[in-house]
């Protein structure tokens, strides 16, 4: 098992050996590989301190001068402490000039279980998704995170990469470039399709294993924004229903809203059911699964709920 950030940083370090147009900024957030980067590229790796607003402003200044910039911090602080800098500096400027800034947020969802609601990141998809020009990637394993590096070096515009805080097993030995381009991969076929990102993809696979074979198909939505894939349209068109599963607040513009928009735009009329958090923060302490249970998203709860849901849809 490998942490997503390690997958990403190892590849980025490799690319930095060959190019001098990269700056890596951190808001005092580290990793062993970052220590190596600071040693090997002391002029290109800057710790701005615990100062997320300045992190984004400095990133914009560098990007306007033509550098490819990475801004690295704990996900809730990276996306919410400096939201206005992201909006004005990155999204708005991206409409006028090249702004190649990649936000690397670590700690998606409830990655930092016992750190409590300040460190849970449940709103980021919704608030960054609402910004024009902002591309969002949500890898589900280290291998996929590593593959995103070249995309962030080449594709223009600001991007947010939402990474898990804890190591997860790689879901496939090799991710196809087509999956990255399409922004999704089908991990398991089934009559009903669950769309999820990151950690919740792993959970969806476990749920699928417990339902009758062929019932629940699992789609790893690697790029929640924008969702623009004819291949995905084709898959969904053949499904009996669509389900979203997220560590995010329902009805707030997060994954459920993004998928609903995709279905509408594609003219697909499959029933959509959504699983996520109700309007309530979690002060509970315990494992990821315990927190999910507190939020009604425990594995047993979801297996029972989906089984009932799918039976109802078939009746």
């Amino acid at each position: 098992m490998k942490a997503m950030r390690d997958g990403f940083l190892a590849t980025l370090l490799d690319r930095m050996q060959q190019r001098d147009d990269v700056f890596f900024l951190t808001a005092d957030f580290g990793s062993p590989l970052l220590d190596r980067m600071r040693q090997e590229h002391p002029g290109r790796c800057i710790n701005v301190g615990i100062a997320e607003q300045n992190l984004i402003n400095v990133a914009l200044g560098l990007a306007l001068e033509g550098f490819k910039v990475y801004a690295y911090a704990i996900a809730p602080f990276l996306t919410m402490r400096c939201y206005e800098q992201i909006r004005v500096g990155l999204a708005l400027h991206a409409q006028l000039r090249p702004v190649q800034v990649t936000l690397l947020g670590v700690g998606a969802g409830m990655s930092y279980e016992v750190s409590g609601p300040t460190h849970h990141c449940l709103e980021d998809l919704a608030i960054l998704g609402v910004l024009p020009h902002m591309e969002i990637h949500a890898p589900s394993d280290a291998a996929t995170a590593a593959l995103l590096v070249d995309h962030t070096l080449e594709a223009p515009g600001p991007k947010y990469i939402r990474m898990e805080g804890k190591p997860l097993p790689d879901l496939q030995a090799k991710v196809s470039p087509a999956a990255l381009e399409e922004g999704f991969r089908l991990l398991r076929p089934g009559r009903h399709l669950v769309l999820a990102t990151g950690y919740m993809v792993h959970k969806a696979l476990r749920i699928a294993d417990r339902l009758s074979p062929g019932t629940l198909g699992v789609i790893d939505l690697l790029r929640p924004k924008p969702i623009r894939s004819r291949a995905l349209q084709g898959l969904v068109a053949q499904a009996s229903s669509v389900v979203t599963l997220e560590e995010g607040f329902l009805g707030s513009g997060g994954l459920d809203g993004m998928v609903a928009h995709f279905l509408r735009e594609a003219g697909l009329h499959q029933p959509l059911n959504t699983f996520g958090l109700r309007d309530r923060y979690l002060f509970d302490l315990g494992s990821r699964e315990y927190l999910h249970q507190c939020a009604g998203l425990g594995e047993d709860d979801l297996v029972a709920a989906m089984d009932k849901l799918f039976r109802g849809l078939c009746a």
Binding site: F23, V58, G61, E65, G66, Q85, V88
Partner: peptide, 27 residues
């Protein structure tokens, strides 16, 4: 806004310029 020739950045919201300028200075 930055759409005006001669304006490097969009400045309607205050407090951004010094950090952006610092980034340019580093660059």
């Amino acid at each position: 806004d930055g759409i005006i020739p001669g304006y490097e950045t969009t400045n309607g919201s205050l407090g951004h310029g010094p950090g952006v300028g610092a980034g340019m200075a580093v660059a």
